[in-house]
Amino acid sequence: MAISKEAYKVLEAIVGEEYISADPVVCEGYRSGPGGYEAGLGYERVMTKIPACVILPLTTEEVQKIVKVCNRYKVPYVPYSTGWYGPRSHCHVDDELLIDLKRMDDCEIDDKHLYAVVGSGVIYSQLQEEAMKRGCYIIVGGGGSQCSAIANMLGDGWSPLSYRIGLPHRRILGTELILPDGELVRMGSLAVGDDPFWGDGFGPDLRGLLRGFTGLRGCLGIVTKMAIKLLPFQPERLKPTGISPHTALQLPEKRVKWINFTMPSKEAMKDAMFEMARAEIGAGATKVPIFWRAIAKASCKEEYWDIWSKAAGGLRLRGADGIRGAGAQ
């Protein structure tokens, strides 16, 4: 065990013996792997480490205590919500403590004022479904439904719908952040009460701490709770259909349509998007690579390359100016 026995005992006292382990088998399970934009570059093999110890806190107070203990015993640590986004969310130095936040999965929704308060272990698809049960929705960023909602909001998860409802960081409301010394910062309206409805709050806006010096992955602490703005959704429920891997949400036909279209040029595409916005009929329009169609049609990677190689041949024949888009109406 690379973390001192004394430090381990203190950490164990915080969460209980069931929720901490320095066993090599458990730690190996937290090894990084391919993923994110660095997939295939060897980053995960060269620059990441397996943790010396893994701990699973349940509450903000426990995270606070863990951070303070790490300070006291000089234990480096990294927070980890789902392990998605490849190497970035894993350990990078020896003898590191990995703070796995998956147990922090509280989710409360205020459907009158349209916001959700979530813990770090809540993923987008869970939150989306809870929101939709109440007639509202949240944008799931490009990171995907399996992302921790908090982690993706911190990472400013982009979506084709961002132009319509604003970027993620403008939807962050009251937030709790544990600073590196263990101090708890309550942002927005949480600074003066327990209702996280207001992101700006009184006085200086501290939300810059969530992006830090580097922006993406720059958060200067561990976010344990965040209120996220929700948006009203059309009233018809989306019906899940199919058996894996061919599953899809059935869109309400009279209200929502997914349309794939091809535009002759960027200029024409831009004009069309303006027209759609003026007519208030478009929820999103985005240029997508044509290989997405091949992905959607293929049932396996071999079939994908087969379809794509034929489609790519066709694309060359049509010239490089063709702009393809997909829009939801």
């Binding site: 792997g33 391919p34 998605w84 869970q126 479904e129 049960k133 399996q146 259909t241």
Partner: peptide, 24 residues
């Protein structure tokens, strides 16, 4: 064994059928 990207599709219910916070 070496190509897992921790999307955890093996852990979560298919997101299309996600039921919310319970039974997920």
């Amino acid at each position: 064994m070496s190509k897992c990207i921790k999307c955890k599709g093996c852990y979560w219910v298919d997101h299309i059928y996600m039921s919310g916070m319970d039974f997920s």
